[in-house]
Each structure stands twice: as C-alpha cells, then as structure tokens.
C-alpha cells in the first residue's frame, strides 16, 4: 500500500465521508424535503445550501484550527477574534469606509491576534490552551470596547455583500470557504510548510534539533488561524449586518475544534487533512440544521447533538477501526 495523498484520502477518509452521508441521510429521514433545491434570483435555495452557508464560518475557522492542532496546539481564541474583527468591520462600515479598507483592517487585526497567540506559544513557550485562553477571555472585552457595548449595525452595501451576495448560485460564504480551503491546502502541500507543521506536531524537540525553525512555523500557524478567524468574523458581521460583541462567534472555537477532530486530525498533533476538516465542519452543521428541521423541542437539541457526536467519535476511534478490520477479515 502506498499512502500517497489521494491514496491516504481514499482509505483514511472513509469514516468521515461515511459519517457525512449518514447525517445527511438522517436529515432526509426526519425532513423529506431536505435535498430539495430551487433557483431564485440566480441563487440556489434549499436546506443543503443552508448547511453549506451556515457551516461556512465554522469551516473557515476549522481551516486555521487544523494547522494549529496539527502542531499539537489549540486556538481557543478564534471565537473572540471573530468578535473583535466583526466589531472592527462593523464599526468601520458604520463610518462608511471602503470595503477594501474594512477588509484590510479586519484581516490585519486578525493577523495581529494570531501573532500574539503565536508569540505566547512559540517564544514564551506557554501551553497553547492557556496562551489562547487569554485572548479568548479578554477578546470579547476588546470587542466591547470597539463597539462601545452596543450592537453596531450598518447599511454598508459592500460589507453586506460579503455574506449576502452569491456566486455560481452559491452563497458567498460558501465560495469564500471553498476558495480559502483550496488556497490553504495549496499553501501547505505545495510548499514544505505542511511537512514542517506535521513534524513539529509529532515531535517539536526532534524537529528543532533537525534544524526546523519551529518558532517561525508556529508563529505562522497561529497567524493563519487569526486570519481565518478574521474572515469568519467579517462574514458573521456581514450576515446580521451588525456586530454583536457578546455573541458573535460564541462557542464557535469548540465547534471548530470538533470539526477538526471529526475530520480525523488528532489533538496530539501530526498528520492533518484540510479537506477532511471541511467535511467535519459540514457534519456538524448538517447535524445542527437537521435538528432545527426536525421540529423536536429545543430542550433536546444538545442531547441529540451530544449523542450523535459521541457516536461519530466512537465509530472513528482506533478501537472501532480494529473491530471493523477484524470483521472484514473474518
């Protein structure tokens, strides 16, 4: 067996795609119109599109999170960074800056947040979970300062279009997530960055001793995570035409981590797959949308979610893999 990249996908990715298929099937069972699509004003409408559109912010967060987790780290601050960048974008939009200026500022702020996290982790050697917790906690405060405690709303056509327009019949956030995913996959796989990230994640000491510039790679990784959080934050603000410092991106860091884990990247670092993290994000959103469509009382939301996730993780566990292997052989 050779495990070239496509090879690795075709074998290792089976559980992820099977999970997605199972969740979609379940959605179809509780809501028979799940796969219905219709075209309206050159834009596709349907539950599947909702899954893609609503899943886009978590999918984008999961892109950066995948790289961070591959280095054996974690970025708890992405939800708060979303709030900060959304606040910056909304405040500037309310003051009628150009879209280019708004995006540049939001991305710069996101990169800065990532750099801060990276500095704590790579230079000061603070454990990632603690280092990023700092910004997770203070980030919403910073966002509050930007919005002065209010929900800043705007009517900026350009910024509204970021989440509100469509391309190729798909909502813009979906297109952004896809393009970013492809770009990031190209960045890590066409350069040596992916190998170096995996190497640091598996054994940072050995990698450093082999001459790998671990600090720079870690800094870059956290910065990418900050940037993806910025993009997600701008989309979230654009979506509701306002910035809600208290609630934007709330708990999404956990969904992003879950997406990466469901996508098969180990929290212990090492091998990662950006494509599969996207699949993981879709699984989570398909489940969320399915719950909303099912009409179950909301008290059951979290229970259903927990049961499904527990089932997914059990199915993907090495123990289950051994069991399946055994069943196949016998």
């Amino acid at each position: 067996m050779t495990s070239t990249l496509p090879g690795r996908l075709s074998f290792g990715a089976l559980p992820q795609f099977a999970t997605l298929a199972a969740v979609l099937l379940a959605n179809w069972l509780v809501f028979p119109d799940f796969f219905d699509l219709r075209l309206q004003d050159g834009r596709l409408f349907g539950s599947v599109i909702d899954v893609l559109n609503r899943g886009a912010p978590v999918a984008i967060l999961a892109l950066g999170m995948t790289l961070v987790i591959a280095t054996k780290g974690v970025d708890l601050s992405v939800g708060a960074v979303m709030a900060i960048c959304g606040a910056v974008a909304a405040t500037m939009a309310a003051a009628d800056y150009s879209l280019v200026a708004i995006l540049a500022a939001a991305l710069a702020v996101g990169a800065l947040c990532g750099l801060w996290n990276g500095f704590l982790v790579a230079v000061l050697d603070i454990q990632p979970i603690i280092a990023t917790l700092i910004l997770m906690v203070t980030g919403r405060g910073i966002a509050q300062l930007v919005t002065e405690g209010q929900i800043v709303t705007f009517t900026h056509e350009g910024l509204i279009a970021v989440a509100g327009s469509s391309a190729l019949g798909l909502p813009m956030p979906v297109v952004i997530a896809l393009v970013l995913g492809l770009a990031l996959a190209a960045l890590v796989r066409l350069t040596a960055l992916g190998l170096l990230i995996e190497s640091i994640g598996v054994n940072r000491t050995a990698s450093t001793y082999a001459g790998v510039d671990s600090r720079s790679v870690l800094l870059a990784t956290y910065m990418i995570s900050g940037l993806t959080a910025a993009v997600a934050g701008v989309i979230a603000a654009s979506d509701i035409r306002g910035a809600d410092a208290n609630n934007a991106g709330l708990w999404l860091e956990l969904d992003a981590i879950l997406a990466v884990v469901v996508g098969g990247t180990s929290l212990f670092g090492g091998r990662f797959s950006i494509l599969l993290s996207l699949v993981g994000a879709l699984v989570i959103q398909a489940m969320n949308t399915g719950i909303l469509l099912s009409g179950y009382p909301p008290e059951l939301n979290l229970i259903v979610k927990a049961v499904v996730i527990a089932a997914i993780l059990v199915l993907q566990s090495p123990a289950a893999g051994r069991l399946f292997g055994f069943l196949r052989r016998s």
Binding site: D239, G242, D244, N247, L250, T289, L292
Partner: peptide, 12 residues
Amino acid sequence: FTRTKGKEVMES
C-alpha cells in the same frame, strides 16, 4: 437570544 441564531433558525 442572538441575531445570528435567530436568522439561522428562521432559515430552517
């Protein structure tokens, strides 16, 4: 109680 979730739930 949030705008984002209100929008998502209404879509479904």
